[in-house]
Write a protein that binds this DNA or RNA. Structure first.
Lengths: 205, 205
DNA sequence: ACTATCATCACCCCTAAGTATGATTTTGAA
DNA sequence: TTCAAAATCATACTTAGGGGTGATGATAGT
């Protein structure tokens, strides 16, 4: 059984029930169903869910997008819009809140399943990323003389704090070869040491 | 006119044409339509798009999820799946590639508009997260034996790619002193070189 | 007053890192 | 086929980085 708790914000009781039914079918727990902003805030504070499904039009002055703003400011939870509003203006406003998804009514169980699974997974991954991965193309975008793939491998190893000896072993080449590659990398990056190479590419990744 | 270029990977020519039509209607440029993995890779390399729409089932050994893996490894572009496969197994595999969205067929112009707009916006926002500066307290949170302020200064200089000589000059101390500090930093960080020190703290900032 | 931490410096030794130069082989594009 | 780039390796040299040990004065906490 899934322990993931979802908060539903939807002013139409019929649709709310429908969403709730879907969530039950796909083994998500509904932490609460609320019909307005005030209750939504209350639930977010007292019974913090793992993710939120937001209707945009709530028939009051504040709407789902305002709630999204609040989630970003105070709670930092993943949320998805479920709405029938798919016009440019609404999407334009909605995207600025960086939602994890945008499900357009009439929705389908699978839309919610896929949307939530991806939202939750992405959220959990992003929470513990700080290790930015080097990208070959990303680095080369900044260079007139581009790195070869082998050189890029070496640069990655330097970035990971490896010694020349370790690189030689893991790449099955001699230390001399590693040194040659490094010399060429330094030429292209216009640096003269490992640490300055790392500092140089830091802004690029 | 929108200059955003989208790559479509879809093996069914009818659906591909349909997607292309949708993109045109909502003012996105189609950079290319490809039917298999090989062409997809080629397009990614030669005519890098701003985002990718991926069908999962391509009727070959490799599928859209493999292409997604490749995008993450080498290109780091936002991508959305457009597929009729919405079973748990597929979603489970797909979510691991951290897609920006998952559009289930039969799709609708608005699904694509909302999905792409949000994907592109989120991507652009996440890209310019400013490189966090080293923070003294942040580093020490992770250490049992904390760095002194002087040691932290030295660590910053290492992080910036400075040599011991340069540090000695800018801090008005002897190179020997710098070395002593560095030795102590290494002890506390449990590393044995500048580069591994940088790699170690990378996860903390 | 005693102790711990910090910042400072010195000297020795050793190795990893970096520089210079040159060579061979493979491969892919013109 | 020819040419250029890439990957491989070698040898020799220089230097920066790192390990070990020990010492001194300053400061702050118990």
């Amino acid at each position: 059984m899934n322990e993931i708790k979802i908060l539903i914000v939807e002013d139409d009781p019929l649709i709310a029930a429908d969403i709730e039914q879907c969530l039950n079918n796909i083994d998500f727990q509904v932490s609460s169903v609320v019909y307005n902003t005030e209750d939504a805030v209350h639930q977010l504070e007292k019974n913090t869910p793992d993710a939120v499904l937001l209707d945009i039009n709530l028939g009051e002055i504040t709407d789902g997008i305002d709630i999204a703003d609040l989630i970003n400011k105070k709670f930092q939870l993943p949320f998805l819009y479920i709405t029938s509003h798919a016009d440019r203006q609404t999407i334009e406003r909605a995207k600025k809140t960086q939602p994890a998804g945008y499900i357009i009514k009439p929705f389908d169980e699978r839309d919610i399943l896929a949307g939530l699974e991806i939202a939750l997974y992405n959220y959990s991954q992003r929470k513990n990323i700080t290790q930015p991965v080097l990208s070959y193309t990303q680095i080369n975008k900044h260079l007139s003389r581009t790195l070869s793939e082998r050189e890029f491998e070496i640069l990655q190893a330097i970035y990971d704090g490896k010694t020349n000896q370790q690189m030689a072993e893991s790449l099955f080449v001699s230390v001399n070869t590693v040194k040659t590659h490094i010399t060429n990398i330094y030429l292209k990056l216009d640096v003269a040491s490992r640490t300055s190479a790392i500092a140089r590419i830091r802004g690029w990744i």
